[in-house]
Design a binder for these strands. Structure first.
Length: 466
RNA sequence: GGCGCGGUAGCCAAGUGGUAAGGCACGGGUCUGCAAAACCUGUACUCGUGGGUUCGAUUCCCACCCGCGCCUCCA
């Protein structure tokens, strides 16, 4: 069995085989740093994290690049509104972005190139496009890509540009373009750009959006690489344009596999600021949810399905995680300091199932089913006293292994403060004396302090309660 | 109009041409001083609707209904 992924280019499942055996070069479209990321953005980074983690789990050596778009209409406009330099403005959101990733357990990419640090590479790429006669300059000094001169244009999105609807979203003012579908490679400086601008052979200006991804992906990953990911909305025009620019300039295939995650909706509706269902990670943290709970919810739905993000779902995620945590704790209690023995057959069967499911285009639902089956079977054996310490340790190691992929199985350990421990000791004494009313009173007291206590054969067990 | 996705129990969500994984929630039970956790057990005679193919379809084909995305810079 090998890994199969759904390639947007072919619209079918394909066996995943990188250009260079054992080594995967992937490019993932990153944030435009003009605002805090919302849960929809985060879903994309979560999908890419899951994909990269699974590739590593499968033994690939992965090199991932994620861009930071730190110059475009929105960043320029917002920076000016706040009276900040572009760099000062975007730095705030770059920092926030990395903080979000950390809280969500998203492992860092290997490179985070910022657009403003790669202007020369973009200019050079545009020059190559001029050499191939794929670019032209308009009267105002902007540079456009001519889709008419790139016959393969539309192959990713499966769009026929002749049928392009001349609708409201097409900017009718751009009369300087030869074709409505032509897109900007370089935008001439205008009054609204303020002090943002770079000198180029075509005059002062700034790069178009698409060119940054072509320039930066090729400079870090080579002219042909394996994987290119992003949200479905990027298929057209962004990724289509990247293909045109890159393959137009090099004459070589750009990315081998294109993978796109579906969007999410919130409480059944499209996320929008007017509906008040537009959440950033910090909004969710303020409501008392943890990054781990958010991660579980985002990771548990197959990346190509629309995900309905709900607070009920977050509560369900919390409950599911509690079950997983309980099981891991039981394994630890049983394994004590024993070394891991051989993995029992029943667990090995789940291990195979887990891989089989993930190999099928990251079927997480199936993988989670294998995980929960393992929990049920393990609990049953633990109840019956039929799981040896060495077996418990082996199963615990299996969970750690799976967590390299899922990243949700390790609870945040929180040490109880001294006053809580004192109450727990007092309750233990009361129970010893069979003073049940007093014991129950202290249990309620602890609950009010934010800790739940349960009695186990190994003594009282504390848990942070929500 | 074009391209594409989806409709499976109260909610989330897999899946297969042969009779429905898993999670959450809920009811009953075992255990417990009482709990908690865990375990056992009960919850879709049915997979949007109507046809068709087939010995047999939720799974294949056709039509229809409903929801959604993209069609120039939104993950």
């Amino acid at each position: 069995m090998s890994l199969y992924v759904f390639n947007t280019m072919s619209r079918r499942l394909e066996p995943f085989e990188p250009i260079e055996a054992g080594r995967v070069r992937m490019y993932t479209c990153g944030p435009t740093v003009y605002n805090y990321a919302h849960v929809g953005n985060l879903r994309a980074y979560m999908f890419e994290d899951l994909l990269r983690r699974y590739l590593r789990f499968r033994g690939f050596d992965v090199f991932q690049v994620m861009n930071l778009t730190d110059v475009d209409d929105k960043t320029i406009r917002s920076a000016r509104e706040e009276g900040l330099s572009l760099n000062m403005f975007t730095q705030r959101y770059k920092d926030a972005f990395f903080e979000d990733l950390r809280i969500l357990g998203i492992e860092p990419a290997d490179k985070y190139p910022a657009a403003t640090d790669h202007i020369p590479q973009m200019i050079e790429l545009i020059q190559r496009l001029f050499e191939k006669d794929l670019a032209y300059r308009s009267d105002d000094g902007s540079v456009y890509f001519s889709i008419a001169r790139f016959p393969e244009y539309g192959k990713l999105a499966h769009l026929c540009m002749d049928g392009l609807r001349h609708g409201a979203r097409v900017n009718q003012d751009e009369y300087e373009k030869e074709h409505v579908g032509d897109f900007a490679l370089w935008k001439a400086w205008t009054e609204e750009d303020g002090d943002v601008g770079w000198d180029s052979p075509w005059g002062r200006g700034r790069p178009g959006w698409h060119i940054e991804c072509s320039a930066m992906s090729m400079s870090y990953l080579g002219e042909s690489f394996d994987l290119h990911c992003g949200g479905v909305d990027n298929i057209f025009p962004h990724h289509e344009d990247e293909i045109a620019q890159s393959e137009g300039a090099t004459g070589k295939p750009f990315a081998r596999y294109w993978m796109h995650n579906a969007h999410l909706i919130v409480e059944g509706s499209k996320m929008s600021k007017s509906l008040g269902n537009f959440y950033t990670l910090r909004d969710l943290l303020a409501k008392g949810y943890s990054g781990r709970e958010v991660r579980y919810l985002l990771v548990a739905t197959h990346y190509r399905n629309t995900l309905n993000f709900t607070f009920h779902g977050l509560d369900a995620a919390r409950a599911a995680l509690a079950r997983l945590d309980e099981f891991r704790q039981r394994l630890r209690d049983t394994a004590a300091s024993t070394g891991a023995g051989a993995l029992p057959d029943w667990a090995a069967a789940r291990q195979r199932e887990f891989v089989e499911q993930m190999d099928n285009d990251l079927n997480v639902s199936g993988a989670l089913a294998a995980l929960f089956e393992l929990v049920s079977e393990g609990n049953r054996l633990l109840d019956a006293g039929q799981l040896s310490a060495a077996e418990a340790a082996a199963v615990g190691e299996l969970l750690s292994d799976w967590d390299r992929v899922l990243g949700v199985l390790t609870p945040a350990q929180e040490e109880a403060p001294p006053d809580v421990l004192e109450r727990v000791a007092a309750r233990a004494a009361a129970r010893e004396a069979r003073e049940w009313a007093e014991a129950d009173r202290i249990r309620d007291e602890l609950l009010a302090m934010g800790w739940s206590v349960k009695d186990t054969p190994q003594g009282p067990r504390l848990k942070r309660s929500a």
